[in-house]
């Protein structure tokens, strides 16, 4: 149990997906204009990443390993994640319309989110067990959500700032992202093992 908690803590803060692994930077910059939409994106990623961690683990160990096809994992995982997202979208549209309209446009975007694929591949590389894989996927997504929501708050404040013309828009957002990453780098080097 302590192992699981330590894994969660280290993935959320120390090895944050965005700030120390640089995965999922596209939605991090694209969907962080407002905290509400950032939170929506975060929930959608959490949902998909947890499920895809479980499914890719099963497919890897039940299909790829017995047939010595480990080298195909990237292709197969992309295939699985894309189908999974489609399936979840259809399912939610039918049975959970409230959640569907809340996550709506973010779900299809996640299909090619590198954070989701990254979590699946890191699970395999780190030789995690099934439980550990699911926990890793879930907490990595929580870390992602944390980062994107904090950043959305920062960007909202920045709307009133008056930077030089050349810095307006994305450039100043990237500078702010760098400063935020530096704050998170304070956790680097912490170890619990």
């Amino acid at each position: 149990m302590t192992d699981i908690l330590l894994l969660m803590f280290s993935v959320i803060l120390i090895e944050n997906f965005i700030f120390s692994r640089f995965l999922g930077c596209c939605p991090f910059l694209g969907v962080s204009e407002k905290p509400a939409t950032a939170l929506g994106m975060g929930f959608a990623v959490t949902f998909v990443m947890t499920l895809s961690s479980a499914v890719t683990y099963a497919v890897y160990h039940l299909i790829l390993v017995p047939n010595k096809l480990e080298y195909f994992s990237t292709v197969v995982f992309i295939l699985i994640i894309a189908s999974l997202v489609q399936l979840i979208e259809m399912f939610m549209h039918k049975y959970i319309p409230a959640l569907y309209s809340a996550l709506g446009i973010y779900l299809p975007l996640i299909t090619t989110n590198c954070a989701v694929l990254g979590a699946a591949l890191i699970n395999i590389r780190s030789k995690f067990s099934f439980i550990e894989s699911v926990v890793f996927g879930f907490s990595a997504a929580i870390g992602f959500t944390l980062a994107i929501v904090i950043f959305a708050g920062v960007r909202e404040r920045m709307a009133f700032a008056d930077p030089p013309k050349a810095f307006r828009g994305l450039p100043i957002a990237l500078v702010a992202a760098g400063l935020l990453a530096m704050a998170f780098s304070g956790f680097v080097g912490m170890s619990f093992s």
């Binding site: 790829l64 295939l79 699985i80 189908s83 399936l87 259809m90 399912f91 549209h93 039918k94």
Partner: peptide, 22 residues
């Protein structure tokens, strides 16, 4: 295996589209 997986997932999505049609 990879082709088969793709076909199975594709078929699954086709069936799901019918079942979950709104």
């Amino acid at each position: 295996w990879v082709g088969g997986l793709g076909t199975v997932l594709g078929g699954l999505l086709a069936v799901a589209a019918k079942i979950f049609a709104v």
